[in-house]
Every structure is written in C-alpha cells, then in structure tokens.
C-alpha cells in the first residue's frame, strides 16, 4: 500500500523509480514529483521505472498520460521501464504502449527515441 518514489536526475533526464501502488493516492505523489521537475527543467526525458509497482488503476494511468501530454507539449519525451506482467493489461487498455516506449531496463531508456 502507498507509493515510494526515488527521483534521480541524469543530465536532461529524470528517472523516477516507483515502489508500491499507482492508484489515486500514488498518482497524486507521482504527479507532484514529476511536475516539480517539469516546472524547473521545462522539458527533457522522463523515465518512469515501474518494476516495483504492484498495482495500477485508471487514476494511475491518467497520471502517466497527463505527464506524457505535458512533456509532448514541451517537446520532451517519456519512457516506461519494466512494468510487471499483471500491470501491462491496464496500460494496454488505456493505449499507453502506442504512445510511449516501454523498455525492460533503465539503461535502454536513454537510448530509445521519443515517439
């Protein structure tokens, strides 16, 4: 229950490593962390590591999509890392894989191009 966030800036990128549940409460914490960076940096690449996220619902997906829209408007990009197999159907139902790359390891996130 709950969501812990580790934020690691690397150059023009921000890596957010999430641990816990990306539900209504988690979505609010994620949004705050991402928007704080966006407000300061303006743009860049947001890498969201979902490897330790046990649960995602539509409020969590909405928070991801909201940050994606904001980044796209500011010519930035967003990459998701390693969602658990049981989380993927929720992401797929919301069309997330069509919008942003999903990679297996953080190291790959630096290499993929924005869509």
């Amino acid at each position: 229950m709950g969501l812990e966030i580790e934020a690691v800036p690397k150059g023009t990128s921000l890596f957010l490593r999430l641990r816990g549940d990306l539900d209504m409460e988690g979505a609010r914490l994620f949004r705050e962390a991402a928007d704080e960076w966006l407000d300061g940096a303006g743009t860049g690449k947001l890498v969201v590591n979902l490897a330790e996220v046990a649960f995602v619902d539509s409020t969590g997906v909405g928070a991801l999509l909201g940050r994606y829209r904001r980044l796209r408007a500011q010519r930035g990009s967003m990459v998701l890392v390693s969602p658990k197999p049981h989380v993927r159907p929720v992401l797929e139902m919301a069309g997330i894989p069509r919008l942003m790359p999903i990679v297996e390891h953080e190291a790959q996130a630096q290499e993929v191009d924005a869509r």
Partner: peptide, 9 residues
C-alpha cells in the same frame, strides 16, 4: 488526468 475509463475497466 481523469480519463473516464473507470467503467470501461
């Protein structure tokens, strides 16, 4: 951020 997908899910 509210997608309106709750009932769909």
């Amino acid at each position: 951020d509210h997608l309106g997908l709750g009932f769909t899910f």
